[in-house]
Amino acid sequence: IDIFILSPQNRWAFVIENKVRSTQRAGQLLKYRNRIMELFRAQDSSYETATAIDISGIFLTLKEEWPEDIEYTSIRYEKICHFLQLYLAQEAHLLSPEVATFLAHYLEILEDLTGMSKKRSEMENLARQLYRDHKRVLDFIIEHGSGSDFALAVHRLFGENPHRGEITNIAGHNFVYSSLSKSVV
């Protein structure tokens, strides 16, 4: 259970199951409800039936997925983003600076996860424009740059245009250059 709120005196429990990069397992939500009912029964013998406790839940998900258990309501992170955007725009002045900052950072994370981030959209547009303007150079880097870190290290040792048979000394050992591929020298 990701978030669990319990009010024994009101015979009420609330569960939030958070799914970001995974999906629900078969029977997972029902198992949580059963565990909560067992908890109530263990605390007080007057909680004998399933109706003796009201258990509600939210199935918070990044994707379009419905909870297996009808006691849960599905809410997508997109809706949380919309709510937080409106809330922070209208009510942030009522919050302490720490809470407002926390919610703003949380909103940024959710916007990135949901693809609703304006900053991310701007970066994607900038990247597309950069690619259009410099396609030949970027294609060259992609095609020839896959082993570039390794190649840079080899060129640092043997020179910019090493020839077969060239010798370099590293830590008292002589190495003879033969050839260079993406990961072997």
Rank of each mutant, 00 (worst) to 15 (best):
I5R: 05
Q9F: 07
Q9W: 06
N10Y: 05
W12T: 06
W12R: 12
W12H: 11
F14Y: 08
V15E: 03
V15S: 02
E17L: 03
N18E: 03
K19P: 01
R25T: 11
A26W: 09
G27I: 06
G27R: 09
L29Q: 04
L30P: 05
R35W: 03
R35E: 03
I36W: 01
F40W: 09
F40D: 00
A42G: 02
A42W: 04
Q43W: 01
Q43T: 00
D44T: 00
S46C: 03
Y47I: 00
E48L: 07
T49H: 02
A50E: 07
A50K: 07
I53Y: 04
I55V: 02
I58T: 00
L60G: 04
K63L: 02
W66M: 11
P67I: 01
E68Y: 07
D69M: 10
E71C: 07
T73N: 07
I75D: 01
E78A: 06
I80K: 02
I80Y: 03
H82I: 04
F83A: 04
Q85K: 11
A89W: 01
Q90W: 11
A92K: 10
H93L: 11
L94T: 12
L95V: 09
L95A: 01
S96R: 12
P97S: 11
P97Y: 02
P97I: 09
E98K: 13
E98F: 04
V99K: 14
A100I: 11
T101N: 13
T101D: 11
F102P: 05
A104R: 15
H105K: 13
I109Q: 08
D112H: 12
D112G: 03
M116V: 14
K118L: 08
K119E: 10
K119W: 11
R120V: 09
M123S: 13
N125I: 06
Q129C: 10
Y131S: 02
R132C: 06
H134E: 13
K135L: 02
R136F: 12
V137Q: 11
L138W: 05
L138S: 01
L138K: 11
F140S: 12
I142Y: 15
H144Y: 09
S146C: 03
S148L: 14
D149W: 10
L152F: 15
A153F: 07
A153C: 14
V154H: 04
R156Y: 09
R156W: 08
L157K: 11
G159P: 06
G159L: 08
G159V: 14
E160V: 12
N161D: 08
P162T: 15
P162N: 08
R164V: 13
E166K: 15
E166R: 15
I167G: 02
T168E: 02
N169A: 09
I170H: 12
G172T: 06
H173Y: 10
Y177C: 09
S178G: 03
S178C: 10
S179T: 12
L180E: 01
L180G: 03
L180M: 08
L180V: 11
S181F: 05
V184L: 11
